[in-house]
Design a protein around this nucleic acid. Structure first.
Length: 724
DNA sequence: TACTATTTAATTTTT
DNA sequence: TTAAATAGTA
């Protein structure tokens, strides 16, 4: 067997990983060290050289994109399609299992997947129904609580209220939420994983069957696994499975979503025979960029430890620009982007990265002014759009009348005279008889309601029944086409003023084409409609249509993970923004921010700009901030500071500026002789910058952001601040 | 029931 | 600032 095609182009560490004997293996793959390459080549090696059947392999990723890419790369390596190879996301694979074994998983055959938006709606309704006296029941918090428990593998009965009434209420809500889902045959994202885990845990034969089948388990982005995902893998691995996991503890940036880097250590304990290979040679960035990244990340504690290196050139220094404000920052970035583009470089090879989405606005304005085409990542995806979800809700109801989530969404959309009162009537009937809204609607229409409301409900019920009958047996795309028209959605959006309605109708038509292009997976035996609905829930689609033009890329540092660009800007590098204010105060939070910074830096191949603004308009008010502490962690010799052009081009001093905007009134703080942005020194807290002033005379308070002590609010008269 | 005014809060996001 | 959620009005 000629193994050169699989092994050539690999360095020694990569080759060691790819050809490792069949034992558990942990691969720590630094940014740009060829992580995907190792995974795909390992799969090819197992199939081609070790003679493992593709059916004996399971490869898990976190995103559909990564899964698709991995399959494509394996197929191009092997020069043949590998249909029986299971490659997918945790959720996708769990879904497949649940479809196959729905009975053992105790699910209805046509269970529906709900996304987090549907989930939130259900919780909101639940809270409203219960009329909780305490107004403090944020649906989001409850949602977070529920998902957190599910991610940990915990059901309501596992939870102890710890004598805390708050917690008791949350547990009760979790229980009731789950009852609603179970009754309606609804499965949320976390539930997919939890059910799949329970399915194996409670069915030893089934588990054994899968353990026999999948001996080799390959996991991408291992540092991002949450507890239930890890438990699922461990269950599958059993005593004989061979997990091959690849991850990077320094790129773990999803702790807030349940990801636990600790699983890397757990893995070594659970699989004592596991070897570890570190991939540290980087093929992406210049030495300067890697040195900077290493210097930043070394400040984190509890790392496995890893140092990226390259055989490549030193490269350009990292350029740091201190902007006067966020507009100045945007103009600077756009100026450099224009130069880049004019020098004949691909705009798509340049990216502007920021910590939070709100920062994109100013940048976009500047790009529009400069007529530079750009593309913003993130935001609403296709299957998440309102009109699309409306249409899908009709389809869901057609497929499954008990789906309350879908029912509530479209019962009065377009409006058909079923208002809050009528709905309330139905809800209380449904609650009293613990039945679905659909059944409640039928019952309530025939007695409890007034003539008008009753006939409106009957019209709706008949509409759904008729749509179900009319579309039965039609090809999927015709079903969808029928539904968007006879539901009245198209007509409804046509009346919406402005361009918005038009776009919505276009999107609905796009949904018909999506249905036309949908190829059901022959492996799972669902109706094409149910297959399509699952597909819509699991793959919410691209954030934006593919850019047909060569565009500058704008995105958060989170969404940049896994990507690379020749030219990268890290914007808004200020304490309070990045690291974010909400993470600045605890060690774990700060270290995650630092990892995010590490991710940001290592996106750059050749040129890296870091910018920060002294003054920034945030939530409507101007604030001042220090340059991010992460900038200071980059060694000076790697950095070249760019001074603001000429002093005169600098706009007015902040206080004067504020006065002008507020129409001649006196700027806050002027009466006590300070201005916003003023540097001060405090005997105990050290040096800082005045962020805000409030109150008058001896009550006047100042908010000071200290370099080391953080932000404090002080009574000016007592604080004894030295102005600097 | 639908539209408009007011209030409130404000990372990161895949499935 | 702004978007979204809620409250109030026609």
């Amino acid at each position: 067997m000629d193994v050169t095609p699989i092994l050539e182009s690999l360095n020694e560490a990569q080759r060691k990983a790819v050809t490792a004997v069949a034992d558990p293996l942990l691969v720590i793959a630094g940014a740009g060290s060829g992580k995907t390459r190792v995974l795909t080549h390992r799969i090819a090696w197992l199939i081609d050289v070790e003679g493992v059947s593709p059916q004996g392999l399971l490869a898990v990723t976190f995103t559909n994109k990564a899964a698709a890419e991995m399959r494509a790369r394996v197929e191009s390596l092997l020069k043949m399609p590998v249909n029986h190879l299971w490659i997918g996301t945790f959720h996708g694979l769990a879904h497949r299992l649940l479809r196959r074994h729905w009975q053992q998983a105790r699910l209805p055959q046509n269970f529906q997947i709900i996304d987090s938006d549907d989930q939130l709606r259900i919780i909101k309704r639940l809270i409203k129904n219960l009329e909780l006296d305490d107004d403090s029941w944020g649906a989001r918090e409850v949602q977070y609580f529920i998902n957190k428990q599910k991610d940990e593998g915990l059901r309501p009965h596992h939870l102890d209220d710890e004598k805390d009434p708050n917690r008791r209420q949350q547990i009760a809500l979790y229980r009731q939420y789950q009852e609603i889902c179970d009754r309606g045959g609804l499965v949320d994202f976390a539930e997919l994983l939890l059910r799949a885990h329970e399915l194996w845990r409670d069915n030893a034969d089934l588990l054994a069957q899968y353990q026999r089948r999948f001996r080799h388990l390959l996991v991408d982005e291992f540092q991002d696994t949450n507890a239930i995902q890890y438990a699922w893998l461990r269950l599958l691995a059993g005593k004989t499975g061979v997990p091959f996991v690849v991850g990077d503890d320094d790129q773990s940036i999803y702790r807030w979503r349940g990801a636990r880097v600790e699983h890397i250590g757990q893995f070594q304990r659970d699989f004592p025979r596991a070897g570890m290979i570190k991939l540290e040679q980087n093929y992406r960035s210049t030495k300067t960029i890697l040195d900077a990244a290493n210097a930043v990340i070394v400040n984190n504690s509890a790392r496995l430890g890893k140092n990226l290196w390259t055989e490549g050139a030193q490269g350009e220094p990292i350029r740091v620009y201190s902007a006067y404000n966020e507009r100045d920052e945007a103009n600077f970035v756009v100026g450099k982007l224009r130069d880049w583009s004019e020098q004949g470089n691909a705009r798509a090879d340049a990216a502007v990265l920021y910590r939070s989405n709100a920062q994109s606005r100013v940048l976009e304005e500047a790009l529009i002014n400069a007529r530079l085409p750009y593309r913003v990542y993130g935001g609403l995806r296709f299957f998440e759009r309102q009109e699309i979800k409306d249409a899908l809700a009709y389809l869901r109801l057609i497929s499954h009348r008990e789906d309350d989530s879908a029912f509530e969404r479209i019962v009065n959309r377009p409006t058909r005279g079923i208002g809050a009162r009528t709905l309330e009537e139905m809800r209380s009937y449904a609650r009293a008889n613990s039945c679905s809204m659909w059944r409640a609607a039928g019952a309530v229409a025939s007695d409890a309601l007034s003539g008008r409301a009753s006939s409106a409900v009957v019209v709706f019920l008949n509409l759904i029944e008729r749509m179900a009958k009319d579309t039965d047996g039609l090809p999927l795309n015709e079903q969808v086409d029928q539904v968007i028209h006879s539901s009245g959605l198209v007509e409804f959006f046509r009346k919406e003023k402005g361009e918005r309605g038009e776009t919505r109708i276009e999107n609905l038509e796009e949904l018909v084409s999506a249905a036309r292009g949908f190829v059901p997976d022959p492996a799972d035996d669902m109706s094409p409609l149910d297959g399509f609905l699952s597909h819509a829930a699991l793959e919410s689609g691209e954030g934006q249509a593919d850019a047909w033009e060569d565009c500058v890329q704008l995105m958060t540092m989170h969404s940049a993970k896994g990507l690379e660009f020749s030219l990268v800007f890290l914007c808004g590098m200020e304490d309070g923004l990045f690291p974010h204010q909400r993470s600045i105060n605890d060690q774990a939070g700060l270290e995650e921010e630092r990892r995010l910074c590490y991710v940001g830096i290592t996106r750059a191949k050749k040129t890296l700009y870091i910018t920060h603004a002294e003054q920034r308009r945030l939530h409507g008010t101007d604030s001042f901030a220090q340059a991010s502490r992460f900038i200071a962690e980059i060694p000076d010799e790697l950095v070249e500071e760019i001074r603001p052009r000429v002093q005169v081009s600098r706009p007015m001093r902040p206080a004067a500026n504020a006065r002008r905007r507020s129409g001649g009134s006196i700027a806050p703080g002027s009466e006590i002789g300070v201005r916003l942005g003023q540097r001060v020194r405090h005997a105990k807290f050290g040096e800082g910058v005045i962020m805000n002033c409030s109150g008058q005379g001896s009550h006047a308070q100042v908010e000071v952001n200290f370099e080391t002590a953080g932000t404090k609010i002080l009574v000016f008269a007592y604080a004894n601040l030295d102005l600097m």
